[in-house]
Simulated assay, not measured.
Amino acid sequence: MHCPPPATPDAVPFFTAQGAAFGLDLSACIQRVLEQGQFVLGPQVRAFETAFADYVGAAHAIGVANGTDALTLALRALGVGPGQRVAAAANAGYYASTAIAQTGAAPQYVEVDEDSLTLAPAALAQALRGADKPAAVIATHLYGRMADMPALAALCAQARVPLVEDAAQAHGAILGGRKAGAWANVACFSFYPTKNLGAVGDGGALTTSDGALAQRLRALRQYGWQQRKYEVALSGGMNSRLDELQAAVLLAKLPHLDAANAARRAVAVHYNAAFAGLPVRCPSRLDESHVAHLYVLRTPRRDALRAHLLAQGVGCEVHYPIADHRQPVRRAESAFALPVTEAACAEVISLPCHPALSPAQIGRVTEAVRAFFSQGGAC
């Protein structure tokens, strides 16, 4: 659900491209690529892949065209295909479901944890029992908060089922001393412009410490070429390459990511303090495992609050209003009982939370939310 931008001159935007630039002159990055004259799989991509792998703590990073392609390629490289099932959450925007469908497999939706809204270990344990196990599991880090990777990874290892991290919303998050992207067989990142580490267009990457898997991924991102150009050695290949322009921008921004994440987290902490005592559910555990990609409140009065915020010039979004198993393309076949997932989809609303917010803008957001509830929650 996309909220239209506020119309008032002093509106608080949900996202700004200027703020996402981290104060850098990104035009210089672009000019450098134009001057070098190589635009696909060149030195900027190689340099970014090396830097990003080092940052995540993985042996390999493979740049691709976008985050959804990364998920699709991860599943294909793991051998997932028609007739198989992939376990995933159903409250994260249908991106994992899209990737699963592109492999010919079917989703097996698993309930999420009431607090984190990420895969519930107990529910996954149930899905992994018996001989009829899913071929893979996708664990999505949602809103900037990492899923319970120690528990999920242990369950998948015990069941001998490969685990994929969807880390598109958790660049730089750390749990148990390990960053998002370093926990699973393979991890997937999006560099869509609104992400914590965003490009100036689409972009994505995979990280893994499995050398053979990395080799398959590099081949699959480029038609299935493995040893020689134009010789297709692997089926299921795609044309999905991170271009030099995006890699140059990401390479310049990467050293500033941790500071930007800290700024986001500070905004979230301020909101939590300001909303204490209100009849809303605020994000919990705002430590280093949560990089505040989104600041998401939960309230049964979500739609009325949304209308109020827009009238007050405060940008907002809803991430995400329709559970995957309730999407029109799946509604007729849905047999999943996911009450926590469905309740969350009906209540979540995202407030502005990015490094470019000024103290005055943060104050306007908090005042607008508090005013709504002081008026009884009526628009």
Results as ranks from 00 to 15, higher is better:
Asn91Thr: 08
Gly224Lys: 05
Val112Lys: 06
Gly93Cys: 03
Gly144Phe: 09
Met149Trp: 15
Thr118Cys: 15
Ala147Thr: 07
Ala122Lys: 04
Asn91Gly: 05
Ala214Ile: 09
Ala99Thr: 04
Asp132Val: 09
Pro193Cys: 11
Ile100Thr: 02
Tyr223Ser: 12
Leu175Cys: 07
Ala96Ser: 15
Leu175Asn: 03
Ala147Val: 12
Gln108Tyr: 01
Gly204Arg: 04
Gln108Ile: 00
Gly211Gln: 13
Ala214Asp: 04
Val186Ala: 09
Pro107Gln: 08
Asp166Val: 05
Pro150Asp: 12
Arg216Phe: 07
His141Tyr: 02
Ala153Asp: 04
Leu163Asp: 05
Leu206Ala: 13
Gly83Ile: 06
Ala157Phe: 00
Asp132Trp: 01
Ala125Tyr: 01
Ala127Glu: 01
Arg129Met: 11
Ala205His: 12
Gly104Ser: 06
Ala214Tyr: 08
His171Lys: 02
Asp113Thr: 01
Ala187Trp: 08
Leu217Cys: 07
Gly144Ala: 11
Pro82Arg: 13
Tyr192Trp: 12
Gly181His: 12
Thr207Lys: 09
Gln108Ser: 06
Ala170Cys: 14
Ala180Met: 11
His171Pro: 10
Leu152Thr: 02
Trp225Met: 14
Met149Asp: 07
Ala106Arg: 13
Gly181Gln: 10
Leu197Arg: 02
Thr194Arg: 12
Ala127Ser: 13
Ile174Thr: 14
Ala147Trp: 09
Pro162Cys: 10
Gln215Pro: 00
Ala153His: 13
Arg160Val: 12
Ala151Trp: 00
Ala88Gly: 00
Asp132His: 13
Ala101Trp: 01
